[in-house]
Amino acid sequence: MVDKSVIGKTTPTCKMDVEKGHIRRFAQAIGDDNPLYYDEEYAKKSRYGGIIAPPTFPTVFGFEGERVLSGLDINYARLLHGEQEYEYLKPIMAGDTIRFSTKITDVDVKEGKGGAMDIIKTEMAGYNQHDEKVFVARSTVVIRR
């Protein structure tokens, strides 16, 4: 059971260097063969001017630094990802340093087929080394009680 008092809880801002090898391994795990994620020469000649990260790469930031759900009374074996949304403002490039912070925006209880479930919504914003906002990520997780 997660208490509503955690709404507004925000993680300390964290920084991560985006490495091209990390982008490559992330794209490989998905099986996405887009050369913009792998081929430096190709990517340099593209309109991006270098290797970019795939659309779901910001998920990495959620597992880096302090987790917004840490310290909450959650059984991770019963946690499922319900919804995920990204808004993209700028591409994430290999070599970028992204700073980010996550906030709990809502906590609720829903009656499901298998009983009550806790619903937690979070929002993360990411900025690059030029202080440009690059993405906003919104997640909904469901914890079966």
Binding site: G31, D32, N34, L36, P54, E85
Partner: peptide, 20 residues
């Protein structure tokens, strides 16, 4: 994400993606 970016090609730009 792979599906939509393959469709839009390198001339397209993904602005928003949301899933359930």
């Amino acid at each position: 994400g792979e599906h939509i970016t393959k469709w839009m090609g390198e001339t397209g730009t993904l602005k928003r993606l949301g899933v359930r």
